[in-house]
Nucleic acid binder design. Structure first.
Lengths: 157, 157
DNA sequence: TCCTTATTAGGAACCATTCCTAATTAGCAG
DNA sequence: CTGCTAATTAGGAATGGTTCCTAATAAGGA
């Protein structure tokens, strides 16, 4: 289900959002990506077509779309925020080596019992499972494909 | 199972870690807390007994303990890192209002099937379920107990 | 077509975290 | 008990992702 720019403009109107070229382009890149890009990733991918684009606009757009419920933040670590426009329920597998995120759509994970031992007045609205491990290329311990470990502090886990 | 400072020194030696007063105090606070404190929280709680303590030491200590496997980072958002020394398998319930984290220990969540649709060379080492919702006091929409919403960007979700 | 208000771009500010460095101290060997 | 060596500590500076501030621009409705 590829969304054209016109489809996206339509969607924005449905959601009561103004449709601007920048906003459309950013969402277009995000919704057709499975890489869970960072704000900077999006900036880099949209920039060629919009040379005047500012990183600020990317952040602002993401926060507007987030409020509207069209985009979600994905929590991997505390480095930088990564974003996802795939709203169909799914879970994530995170490689501890290269930090890549793989979407997992397994219906068995979408019907978990609500947890026991919870205050009864707590209202749960959603949940997500985060699997962690090592992908094929990062399998050998301490190996990292994209990011070479720099830093004076010992790497946590 | 309250751990005394001596118990902790013992534990550090088992793990081949040097035992310093600061390190012991930080871990002591963390392991007896269920609040998943930030580095600054820990700093504030340990400072009275160690007036010379530096925030840097807290970060360094957390990274050492993290590497040793005694402490884990909890990912809530991309604001600041929160830490947990509770190593027994458990999951988290996060209030979207006050950002508090509640531990959940439900054995049913500890035997999830490994997800389908995963590259076969991916090796999963752990997983965690993060439930999100609103606690009793934050239940009414837009209400927040601890943090009043400041910021010019629309709040994402 | 005009008006109002949101959006944009750019630069400055913020703040959690990390880096750098010298002084201190834990743990070990003698 | 004493001295050695490497890790730890404290403090201050630097980093970098994100947000704030502001004026100019453009979208959508009247």
């Amino acid at each position: 289900m590829k969304l054209s720019l016109e489809d996206i403009q339509h969607k924005f109107r449905e959601y009561g959002l103004k449709s601007t070229p920048q906003r459309t382009a950013i969402y277009h890149v995000l919704i057709h990506s499975t890489a869970h890009p960072t704000a900077e990733d999006l900036f880099a991918q949209v920039s060629p077509a919009h040379p005047m684009l500012s990183l600020n606009t990317v952040y602002y757009t993401l926060s507007v779309l987030g409020t509207a419920g069209l985009v979600r933040e994905v929590n991997v670590g505390h480095d930088r925020a990564r974003y996802d426009a795939n709203l169909t329920p799914h879970h994530h597998v995170i490689c501890q080596g290269c930090q890549n995120i793989i979407d997992v759509m397994d219906p068995r994970l979408d019907c978990l019992a609500s947890p026991s031992g919870l205050p009864h007045d707590f209202e749960i609205t959603s949940y997500q499972v985060a699997f962690r491990g090592y992908c094929g290329t990062c399998r050998q311990p301490q190996a990292s494909t994209t990011t070479s470990p720099t830093g004076n502090y010992p790497a946590s886990s």
